[in-house]
C-alpha cells in the first residue's frame, strides 16, 4: 500500500546527514513604528530523521521561524535549504500541525485527511487513497470516528486528525507549532505517544515548538533554546541522550532528566 511513493522522497540524504540547513536567517516585520527585526543571523542545522524541539519565551519568534520553514512566511534575509534546495514556498513535503487543529469543520475526519491524500497521490485509485487515509486515522486511534464531522470532535480528537493529515502527506519534515498546548495533560501525554510512534515508524524529521519543558525533553533528540527577541537567535542546544523507544515513567525517574530540566530552566530564567 505504501509503495505509492511520491517523487518527493527521492534523492533524500541518509540518516544523520544534515537535511535542513538554516543560514544567516533574518526576519523583519514592517510596523507603523518602523521595522521590527524578529530574527537575525540565525543558524541551525537539523539532521535527517531527527526530532528537535524548540523552546523560548513567548514572542521571541518561534512561530515566525517555523512558518518560514513551512514556506508560509517570507524570508527577509539568509536562506533555508532543504535537501540542497532553498525553500521558496509551501508544499506537501513539509507537513504542518498548528496549535489550533485547523481542520475544515464542514468536512468529516476522513474527508479532511483525504484532501491531503488526494494532493500527494493524484494517480492512485480511490480505494488506495482511502486505505492510506484510514491507515493514518487508525494510527492516531480514530478508526471509529472517521465519518464524524470535524466540528463534532473534541479538541484532542481534532488534533489527532491533524496529526493523521500531516503524516498522510508523507512529508520529509513535520513542523509542529505547540500542537498540544490547548489540551489537558492526560490527552497531551497520549498524543505525545501517538506522535512518537508514528514519527518512529515513518522515519521523518520533526521540528516541534513547545512551551512545556518536560515535553521538550521527553520528545527530543535535541532541544533548541532560542534567545528572547528582538533579533532572536539560537541560544543553546541540549542533546537528550535517552534511549528510544522512550518510556515516560522511567525517563521522569532518570537522574539525567533533572540535569536536562535544570539546564533548560536555567536558560529560560536567565
Amino acid at each position: 500500500m505504501f509503495e505509492l511513493t511520491s517523487s518527493i522522497r527521492e534523492n533524500a540524504p541518509s540518516m544523520g546527514q544534515v537535511m535542513l540547513d538554516i543560514v544567516d536567517l533574518k526576519k523583519v516585520y514592517p510596523t507603523p513604528k518602523g521595522d521590527y527585526v524578529v530574527l537575525e543571523d540565525l543558524q541551525l542545522q537539523i539532521k535527517k530523521e531527527e526530532f528537535v524541539t524548540i523552546i523560548g519565551h513567548s514572542g521571541c519568534g518561534k512561530t515566525t521561524l517555523l512558518s518560514m520553514i513551512a514556506g508560509l512566511n517570507k524570508i527577509s534575509g539568509g536562506a533555508i535549504v532543504l535537501n540542497g534546495q532553498p525553500i521558496i514556498g509551501p508544499g506537501p513535503d513539509r507537513g504542518v500541525i498548528f496549535q489550533s487543529p485547523s481542520l475544515l469543520p464542514w468536512m468529516t475526519a476522513l474527508e479532511n485527511v483525504m484532501l491531503a491524500v488526494n494532493q500527494v497521490y493524484p494517480k492512485a485509485t480511490k480505494t488506495q487513497k482511502l486505505d492510506v487515509a484510514k491507515y493514518y486515522l487508525a494510527k492516531v486511534g480514530l478508526s471509529n470516528d472517521i465519518n464524524k464531522k470535524a466540528r463534532e470532535l473534541s479538541q484532542g480528537m481534532q488534533q489527532r486528525v491533524g496529526i493523521a493529515r500531516a503524516f498522510s502527506l508523507k512529508p520529509k519534515v513535520l513542523l509542529l507549532d505547540e500542537p498540544f498546548g490547548m489540551l489537558d495533560s492526560l490527552t497531551r501525554g497520549e498524543l505525545q505517544d501517538v506522535l512518537l510512534e508514528v514519527w518512529n515508524k515513518e522515519k521523518i524529521t520533526a521540528i516541534m515548538i513547545t512551551h512545556d519543558v518536560d515535553e521538550a525533553i521527553f520528545l527530543a533528540d535535541r532541544v533548541i533554546m532560542m534567545t528572547s527577541g528582538p533579533k532572536a537567535q539560537i541560544g543553546k542546544i541540549e542533546e537528550i541522550k535517552f534511549e528510544r523507544p522512550r518510556d515516560r515513567k522511567s525517563i521522569i525517574e532518570h537522574d539525567d532528566f533533572y540535569h536536562y530540566r535544570k539546564s533548560l530552566i536555567d536558560f529560560l530564567e536567565h
Binding site: 508560509l72 508544499g91 506537501p92 504542518v96 489550533s100 485547523s102 464542514w106 484532501l115 491531503a116 494532493q119
Partner: peptide, 28 residues
C-alpha cells in the same frame, strides 16, 4: 479563516479546489 488558507497553501490546492473545498464552504 487564515488557518484554512494555510491548509490550502500547505496542500498546494489548485484554484478550483481552493474555491470549492475551502473558500465557498467557509463563506456559505
Amino acid at each position: 479563516d487564515k488557518d484554512y488558507l494555510n491548509v490550502a497553501n500547505v496542500l498546494q490546492l489548485g484554484f478550483m479546489k481552493r474555491i470549492f473545498k475551502i473558500i465557498l464552504p467557509s463563506s456559505l
